[in-house]
């Protein structure tokens, strides 16, 4: 971690937001605190502040997404920025345009920020490395690497309900091996000083040595969620079934599906989270998803505030660079 973090500018402020890796606890807290002050904006008559007026933000999605893209779009609009939505899977790359060509063309349209989702790990880093110096890049999910804004909105939701991270026991359930969400969550939870982070998954959906990630490993759901404060269910990607990593959805639910009955093992005030969209009857049954412990829809609302925070913080450093010139 001694190499310079390209996410930070010369003053140590957030310039790009690509991964939780390498960011200090103070920075994560600054994002959470800033997000806190943005939550009020969404509840007002005029749901807009003029902070990024005249800026152009490009949502560049090489992978399908509804929720993430929409909340980034809403966040940008509530900051008064102009938004360009590009679903590139249906666009130029199918005509043979390279990632760098795409970047150069959008730069020529004077875009100030890229929000990028791509199936290749490292795509957002590539953009941040090659983009003109005044441009900020936010990673909206790259391959199996990272999804830092999702992790931060989860941290925000946990902090809202539980306060401090010290003393908390958090369990992440599901496909840890392929999940960029889980990877970012584990980094964020540990950076923020969570007392115990647990992962609960079948062996086929765990990396070879999960303990190096700073987690406790469980293979049994009820044992794993015993006395936890927070349960994070991950989305099960259907294509894992075809990869022979899992026998069937039905069997997965039998072993790892969260039900009211199983939830009793957790603390009585434990909250249940899910990055969405939920496969009802696979990761959890509807009773839990719509029940009093579920904070899944709050995660969506908080996602807007967190993305507003990250966008304004990174654009703010861009401004500083301009003044220095």
């Amino acid at each position: 971690m001694s190499k310079p973090n390209i996410q930070l500018d010369n003053n140590g402020r957030l310039k790009h937001f690509l991964t939780i890796d390498g960011l200090k606890r103070e920075m994560l807290n600054e994002i959470l605190d800033t997000a806190e002050s943005f939550t009020g904006v969404s509840e007002r008559v005029v749901k807009k502040v003029p902070l990024l007026r005249g800026k152009t933000i490009c949502n560049l999605f090489f992978e399908n997404s509804t929720r993430t893209r929409t909340t980034f779009e809403v966040a940008a609009k509530r900051l008064s920025a102009d938004v360009l939505n590009l679903n590139v899977s249906t666009s130029s790359t199918t005509k043979g345009e390279t990632l760098l060509d795409t970047l150069r063309n959008l730069e020529a349209m004077h875009v100030d920020m890229f929000v990028i989702r791509h199936s290749d790990s490292g795509a957002a880093h590539f953009f941040a490395t090659h983009a003109a110096p005044h441009i900020s890049v936010i990673n909206a999910g790259d391959g199996q690497h990272a999804h830092p804004t999702q992790a931060m909105l989860d941290m925000f939701t946990i902090r809202r309900h539980k306060g401090e991270f010290t003393g908390l026991r958090v369990a992440i359930v599901g496909d840890i091996l392929h999940s960029r969400v889980a990877r970012s969550q584990i980094l964020a939870l540990n950076t923020l000083g969570t007392s115990e982070v647990r992962v609960i998954a079948p062996r086929t959906l765990l990396p070879p040595d999960p303990r190096t990630m700073g987690v406790h490993v469980f293979h049994d759901l009820e044992e794993g969620i015993k006395d936890v404060d927070v349960i994070i269910m991950l989305r099960l990607q259907k294509e894992r079934m075809t990869g022979a990593l899992l026998p069937s959805e039905h069997e997965y639910f039998q072993l790892y599906g969260l039900t009211e009955k199983r939830l009793k093992a957790a603390k009585p005030d434990a909250i249940v989270m899910h990055p969405g969209p939920i496969n009802r009857g696979v990761e959890m049954d509807s009773q839990v998803a719509d029940g009093p412990r579920s904070v899944i829809l709050q995660q969506v609302s908080f996602g807007i505030a967190v993305r507003m925070a990250v966008m304004s913080m990174t654009m703010g450093t861009q401004a500083q660079g301009a003044a220095a010139r």
Binding site: T34, S37, G316, Q320
Partner: peptide
């Protein structure tokens, strides 16, 4: 009121790291 989101010098000095919510 915390007027940080309405400042006219945001493009010069960036985000105030200690914004408080307006109520």
């Amino acid at each position: 009121l915390d007027i940080s989101f309405y400042r006219d010098d945001f493009t010069r000095i960036g985000m105030n790291p200690k914004v408080k919510p307006s109520q």
